[in-house]
Amino acid sequence: MTSNAVLDEAYQRLHGKGPEFGGDEEGNHGLSNHGPMAVEVMVRRGLDLDVHRWLDRYLDRLTDLPGTTEPITTHNWRAALGDPRRIGDWTVYFTGQIAEQRWKQVLTTWWPRLLPGLIAGSTHGVIRVGHAVRALRAADQDRIAATELGHGLAFWAARWRTLPGLAAPTGVRPARSALAAVPRLTEQSGFITHRLNRLAELPGWPAALAALQPADSPADVPARLADLVHAATLGYLTHGQASPVLLVHTATAPNAVRHVLPVLPTPMWVPSFTAAWHASAAVTATYAPAQPETPSAPTLGNDPATEVLDRAARHGDEHVIKFADTALDAFDHTGDPDVLAAALHTTRLIPSP
């Protein structure tokens, strides 16, 4: 069986399940379905895991995809944007659009519409889209992977929301310095929705966003995004203990944007970088502690990249697997072994399933 066939079978098993589980009646989401993202990493990276056996365990946690209420159309979609009760409607809409058009056409139509709400679902919308696009870049005509992209876009649209107090980067700080200087909420409690609302009153929030060195042209964006992923991955090593699961996404969200970038028109690149920065900074402000810690450095062997993958596979948690993938991308860009140490740090902080 080819790797694409394994991934397609895994996607098909997951497509009857919803993108979240464990939410409340007020629409606050609980946990996001990481199955599609995790299995894409397992297959692409060749992890020493039986994908279907892993799914057998994981699927028991999920709930069925919600039903539909009212069709979404080209005329009424704005009213449904950001309404989590419409996830079934959005899924039917996007999977239908992708069945009728090329997936790249659907993506480039909707990317600028969804981009201002990149924080959607704690950034899981864009992350799911990023993994689907990576699968499609490897197999452009894969119908099932294209359907997975539709599911990712649907989740992003249903959870779409904007952030308060945004400012575009205009400063001189490199990504690592800018991310470290993001102010932290003193009241870090409640769902992420509640925390993000508090950013409107956070002293220094707009100034911190503006302090980042901008991408002045599309040509600057790939390097700027890679630097942001590197900075956020290193940040987990010193701040991850405060919220081991949520702070993974400071790095995995901008890395998802990196994987989508090559299939987007270049005029979309600079806004994509800015949105990724805003999302990474928002998760940092709402979950990271004000003071870093200095954990003992994990021991790395002679083949650290392989060791990271092996340790992630043995651990088995979906966040550990996703973060290992992002850390390896950062390592490929920089050669910095500390990003691999950060990946191993997740295996200490996140309980094994």
Results as ranks from 00 to 15, higher is better:
Gly35Phe: 07
Gly35Cys: 09
Pro36His: 06
Ala38Phe: 11
Val39Pro: 03
Val39Asp: 00
Val41Asp: 08
Val41Ile: 14
Met42Trp: 11
Val43Leu: 09
Arg45Ser: 08
Arg45Gly: 00
Arg45Asn: 03
Gly46Cys: 10
Gly46Glu: 11
Leu47Met: 11
Leu49Ser: 06
Leu49Lys: 06
Asp50Gln: 08
Asp50Ala: 15
Asp50Met: 06
Arg53Gln: 14
Tyr58Pro: 12
Leu59Gln: 12
Leu59Glu: 14
Asp60Cys: 02
Asp60Pro: 01
Asp60Trp: 09
Arg61Met: 10
Arg61Ala: 13
Leu62Arg: 10
Thr63Ser: 12
Asp64Cys: 00
Asp64Gly: 13
Pro66His: 06
Pro66Phe: 03
Gly67Glu: 06
Thr68Pro: 01
Thr69Glu: 14
Glu70Met: 07
Thr73Glu: 06
Thr73Met: 08
Thr74Tyr: 02
His75Gly: 00
Asn76Asp: 14
Ala79Pro: 00
Ala79Arg: 14
Ala80Glu: 07
Leu81His: 08
Leu81Glu: 02
Leu81Thr: 09
Gly82Asn: 02
Asp83Phe: 02
Pro84Glu: 03
Pro84Gly: 04
Arg86Ile: 07
Gly88Asp: 05
Gly88His: 05
Trp90Val: 04
Thr91Phe: 00
Thr91Pro: 01
Val92Gln: 14
Val92Asn: 01
Tyr93Gln: 04
Tyr93Thr: 04
Thr95Ala: 01
Gly96Met: 08
Gln97Asn: 03
Ala99His: 07
Ala99Val: 05
Ala99Ile: 04
Ala99Met: 00
Ala99Trp: 00
Glu100Arg: 15
Gln101Lys: 14
Arg102His: 14
Lys104Met: 04
Lys104Gln: 15
Gln105Ala: 15
Val106Pro: 01
Thr108Tyr: 01
Thr109His: 14
Thr109Val: 13
Thr109Gln: 14
Trp110Met: 05
Trp111Cys: 11
Trp111Phe: 13
Pro112Lys: 09
Pro112Cys: 04
Arg113Gly: 00
Arg113Tyr: 01
Arg113Trp: 02
Pro116Asn: 11
Pro116His: 11
